[in-house]
Design a protein around this nucleic acid. Structure first.
Length: 135
DNA sequence: GCCAACGTTGGC
DNA sequence: GCCAACGTTGGC
């Protein structure tokens, strides 16, 4: 069991869209590091969903529902997609500012490598973010 | 295989 | 809307 954090621009595809569709096809990743992380996902791994740009907060929690497969948005065999289903919404979104202010989260790739869109996170970091998101 | 140019992401 | 960071592309 592994924990992940994925980013999405809410203008393009939001947590709310994902809930409405009851599923998200996580495609369009065009970065090797992020792609490798997608490939490393296992069924039922837990994924934190982060809204970048306008929101800048972790909004919900999903679950990997399909292992990496050919990205349907391209014929290029280098790129893959996974399916993620929504599990729970955080009662209180955890903002980037909160994450930055938390010393235990200081070395999250989210902060250190701000352009990476799919990243692994430790169980401790995961639990802490969920705790911070409780109502 | 190196490196400069370019494009994109994402925070501010 | 700007700009810094950084990944990717393409010329050599």
């Amino acid at each position: 069991m592994q924990y992940w954090l994925v980013k999405t621009e809410p203008e393009a595809f939001s947590w709310q869209d994902m809930v409405a569709q009851k599923r998200a096809v996580w495609d369009g990743v065009r970065n090797y590091t992020a792609r490798n992380n997608l490939k490393a996902m296992a069924l039922n791994d837990i994924v934190l969903i982060y809204h970048s740009v306008t929101d800048k907060c972790v909004v919900g929690l999903g679950r990997v529902d399909a292992l990496a497969y050919q990205d349907p948005t391209t014929d290029d065999e280098r790129w893959v997609a996974v399916d993620i289903v929504p599990v729970t919404e955080l009662p209180k979104p955890v903002t980037l500012a909160q994450i930055k202010a938390e010393p235990a989260l200081a070395d999250l790739p989210l902060i250190k490598q701000s352009r990476l869109s799919v990243m692994p996170i430790s169980e401790d970091a995961f639990k802490l973010i969920v705790e911070m998101g409780k109502g």
